[in-house]
Simulated assay, not measured.
Amino acid sequence: MEAFLPHLQTFYKKFPYTLVNNNERHYQAVLYTILLILGCDVTPEMPTSDGRIDMVLKTKRSIYVMELKYKKDTEVAMEQIDCKDYLAAFADDSRKKYKVGINFSEDRRSIDDWKVEALA
């Protein structure tokens, strides 16, 4: 994930501003499309008992719970993952779990910052 996110940031920077619908849903739809085209096991808007996870990416060895924000910061995203206990939905899965917070900038129309945390 740490290697992928700089490439994703560069991709968003190349996106023509005339095609950007500057809101969280736009960035989520683009990310979902990219991951789907790459053949990833990805689920957007995954419902849980306490809300919806913006995106879940599963690999053979890992589960990435992703919370996307627009004009906020990654700490807000990470706090939401914790407060809503999104990872509880995967407690019975033996794969390594990661929390991923991504914030998109209104001015840059790209990823402003991100944070990835592995769970022990």
Results as ranks from 00 to 15, higher is better:
Phe4Ala: 04
Asp82Glu: 14
Gly101Leu: 03
His26Arg: 06
Thr43Arg: 11
Val20Ser: 04
Asn21Ala: 08
Met78Pro: 06
Tyr98Gln: 01
Trp114Tyr: 15
Asn21Glu: 06
Cys83Tyr: 13
Lys13Val: 03
Pro16Gly: 05
Thr10Pro: 12
Val30Phe: 08
Ser94His: 15
Asp107Ile: 04
Pro16Leu: 03
Lys97Arg: 12
Arg109Phe: 06
Gln80Lys: 06
Thr18Glu: 15
Ile81Asn: 03
Val76Ala: 07
Thr10Gly: 15
Ala29Ile: 08
Leu38Ser: 15
Pro44Val: 00
Gln28Glu: 04
Gln28Phe: 01
Leu5Thr: 08
Glu67Ile: 00
Lys13Cys: 08
Asn23Ala: 00
Thr48Ser: 00
Tyr12Lys: 05
Tyr17Phe: 06
Tyr70Met: 05
Thr59Asn: 10
Thr48Gln: 03
Glu117Asn: 12
Ile63Trp: 02
Leu87His: 11
Glu79Arg: 13
Thr48Asn: 00
Ile102Asp: 04
Asn103Phe: 05
Tyr70Thr: 03
Asp107Glu: 09
Glu2Tyr: 08
Asp54His: 01
Ile81Gly: 02
Tyr32Leu: 10
Glu24Gly: 00
Asp82Ala: 12
Ile53Glu: 01
Leu38Thr: 14
Ala29Ser: 14
Met78Phe: 08
Lys14Phe: 13
Tyr86Ala: 02
Tyr17Arg: 13
Glu75Val: 13
Leu36Ser: 15
Arg108Cys: 11
Ile37Ser: 11
Arg109Met: 10
Glu75Ala: 14
Met1Pro: 08
Asp92Ile: 06
Phe4Ser: 07
Leu8Val: 13
Glu79Thr: 10
Ser49Met: 08
Ile53Gly: 00
Ile37Cys: 13
Ala91Ile: 10
Asp113Pro: 05
His26Thr: 10
Leu119Asp: 08
Arg61Thr: 12
Ile102Thr: 01
Tyr12Cys: 07
Lys115Phe: 06
Ser49Cys: 06
Tyr64Gly: 03
Leu87Cys: 06
Cys83Asp: 12
Asp93Cys: 06
Ala88Cys: 11
Ile111Phe: 05
Arg95Cys: 06
Trp114Met: 05
Asp82Tyr: 14
Tyr64Lys: 07
Asn21Val: 07
Tyr12Trp: 12
Arg25Asn: 05
Arg109Gly: 09
Thr33Gln: 11
Asp73Thr: 03
Ala118Gly: 14
Leu8Glu: 04
Lys96Met: 11
Val20Ile: 13
Ser94Ala: 14
Tyr12Pro: 13
Arg109Thr: 09
Gly51Asn: 03
Thr59Trp: 09
Val76Gly: 03
Leu19Phe: 11
Glu75Lys: 15
His7Trp: 14
Leu35Tyr: 12
Asp93His: 08
Leu19Glu: 08
Lys71Glu: 14
Gly101Pro: 02
Thr59Gln: 10
Leu57Asn: 07
Pro6Phe: 02
Leu87Asp: 01
Lys84Met: 02
Lys99Phe: 07
Asp73Tyr: 09
His7Glu: 15
Phe104Tyr: 05
Glu79Gln: 14
Asn21Arg: 12
Cys40Gln: 15
Glu75Tyr: 14
Thr74Ile: 13
Leu5Ile: 15
Leu57His: 10
Glu45Asn: 02
Met1Trp: 11
Lys96Asp: 13
Met1Gln: 09
Val76Ser: 05
Pro47Ala: 01
Pro44Gly: 00
